[in-house]
Design a protein around this nucleic acid. Structure first.
Lengths: 224, 224
DNA sequence: CATTTTTTCGAGCGATCGCTCGAAAAATTG
DNA sequence: CAATTTTTCGAGCGATCGCTCGAAAAAATG
């Protein structure tokens, strides 16, 4: 299936969070819970992305979200749990969005590679604060949460590697394509959200960015 | 001049720090000061890169370096000053290493581009913990220090852009080379230190990495 | 509307933070 | 070796941290 932005909306992601943790979340009524959770998560991503997750105090979060200190703890039992909840949704969204390409795309390695690049950039654009949070903060996370982030990154790289390997086998990509290529396409994809402010400042359109990364990637492996 | 690893050693960088801040550093004798400063900086980079600069407490730093709390403040007057001192050395090292290529390299745009890539990777390898600190932590820095980091990044990109523009003018690079190319070579260079652990785990040699990034970059702009 | 349940609140707890400062230890000097 | 300077030390200060919990407010119930 092609990329569906609706499954990456704030609403959808918070609803999923609520569902995944309905046993530990103290608020019973979904309409109450969803409304507040969205406010909390929005504020948490914003504060974290500006000062770092560690530097975001729960008093900051309380003030920014308008939810009292005690109120916050109806949604998570520790600051680390909040981190894990957000991280879980990001990694799930990555897998959901990249795992099943349209049939006609999956059959064609070059199309598959182009599709992965296109979908990844669109997904990160849609979930910008989530990705900024999950992968720029990752190195300061506790061990278990850091592992979640790196596993998710390696999964993306594995999808790229799969498409490229298939292309090499079928002859549309050169046999001497560098084995480092999948690892190096990854930072090209990540730059869209890591340096988002720079590209915005320069007026770079998402479509231009996608096509440039696609061109660089294909030029590095295409058999001409 | 070509890349000189000696100017990027711990000794050289700490000596430079000492010189730059000799008026605010309370320890008079250089032999005392340099020895301790090296220990402090080494520990600070290590702790910061594992837990984040914000999360590194000065008590952690005191314990890891073997220098007492009070002793630390003979070298900086605040935690932010320590940050700024390290950042200053990194940005100076970038400018020093990349600003003047050998004459025969500067005259040839393709050689210049290859040289910038080679030199950047070698420099970041030599100063690995410094770069990890300066650019992975940057987004959580106070405004002024964050600006230092981004300015340094833009300087590197400007060097790449200069070499590529010269190549386009002289016809060795295609006229329709993407204007995004310099911005996108940057994350390829950064991946060497951002994901250093991954490349080490996979046994990727620095020379292989350099050559692959060079090949991808040239393939994206070469006139064939 | 009285009662019960659910949600929200924020002052307060112990721990830890960046940082200071007077005294001890070490090195230098005459 | 006594006197002086330089270096090192760590307990303690006020502020802030993550987190708790009993009470108030709001909503649902009968």
């Amino acid at each position: 299936m092609s990329f569906d932005a609706r499954t990456c909306s704030l609403d959808a992601l918070c609803a999923s969070m609520l569902d995944r943790h309905r046993d530990t979340i103290g608020v019973q009524k979904p309409e109450f819970a969803l409304r507040k959770l969205k406010v909390i998560v929005t504020a948490a991503l914003d504060l974290s992305n500006r000062k770092g997750f560690q530097a975001m105090s729960l008093r900051d979060l309380s003030l920014a979200s308008g939810v009292s200190m005690g109120g916050l703890y109806a949604y998570f039992d520790s600051k680390t749990t909040l981190l894990k909840m957000i991280l879980t949704e990001v990694t799930a969204a990555v897998k959901r969005s990249l795992s099943d390409p349209p049939a006609e795309v999956a059959a064609d390695p070059r199309a598959h590679l182009l599709w992965l690049i296109d979908t990844h950039v669109r997904m990160t654009e849609e979930m910008l604060p989530w990705f900024t949070f999950a992968f720029m903060e990752a190195k300061n996370f506790p061990a278990e949460e850091r592992r979640m982030a790196t596993d998710s990154e390696e999964l993306t790289e594995a999808y790229l590697a799969g498409a490229i390997a298939a292309g090499v086998r079928s002859g549309v990509f050169r046999a001497d394509t560098s084995p480092l290529l999948p690892a190096l396409i990854k930072p090209l994809l990540q730059d869209w959200y890591v340096k988002r402010a720079k590209y915005r400042r320069r007026g770079v359109k998402m479509q231009t960015y996608i096509e440039t990364v696609q061109a660089i990637s294909v030029a590095a492996c295409d058999a001409h």
